[in-house]
Design a binder for these strands. Structure first.
Length: 166
DNA sequence: ACCCCGATCGTA
DNA sequence: ACGATCGGGGTT
């Protein structure tokens, strides 16, 4: 069985985890695909983050232990998948925005969750332990950094990462 | 209890 | 570029 990303991998700076998740294979139930696009969301000093206002009921998980899934509903109709980063007490999460399946490329967090059928039922799962939800280890890739999508603040922070196709 | 808006998507 | 769509987060 292939090596999986462990707690140590996720318990680091959010931007670094977001960068290094590129090129890794995400396994979820019967699906698997290569992560091609991510975004870093930090805590109290990131106005675009759900954790900006502190550990509210929704954002508390971002202050918790790394390596857990954070799934939330957006626009009343789409789910978005994140993985918690940093050490307990420090908020952080990486949004998964692009996934290359064998058959097709899923661009956009809503499309990924819709296709894989990821819902609130898959929130708060320890992906360093789960049998059907994990990420496979692989070497880092080179990447491009851009502003994050769909937010109005902090456009000066280049925290969206795209795997560079060479 | 309630108001408002969003880490989106599809079509134009 | 813009409208659909609506659950629930944050505040009252």
């Amino acid at each position: 069985m292939a090596e999986r990303l462990n707690r140590t991998f996720f318990s680091r700076a959010t931007t670094m985890v977001a960068q290094e998740l590129l090129g890794k294979r995400l396994h979820f139930n019967n699906f698997s695909g290569i992560i091609t696009e991510t975004e870093a969301y930090c805590g109290l000093n990131d106005p675009a983050s759900h954790a900006f206002r502190g550990p509210t009921p929704r954002a508390a998980i971002m202050f918790g232990e790394a390596g857990f899934s954070y799934v939330y509903l957006i626009y009343g109709m789409y789910y978005c998948l994140n993985f918690v980063t940093e050490t307990p007490g420090i908020a952080g999460a990486v949004l998964i925005r692009g996934l290359q399946l064998d058959s097709r490329h899923l661009n956009g967090p809503g499309k990924i969750c819709r296709h894989l059928e990821i819902t609130k039922a898959h929130h708060n799962i320890d992906i360093t332990q789960s049998k059907n939800f994990w990420v496979e280890a692989a070497p880092p890739l080179s990447f491009i950094a851009t502003p994050r999508i769909g937010i109005k603040t902090a456009q000066d922070r280049l925290w969206r990462y795209l795997a560079k196709i060479s």
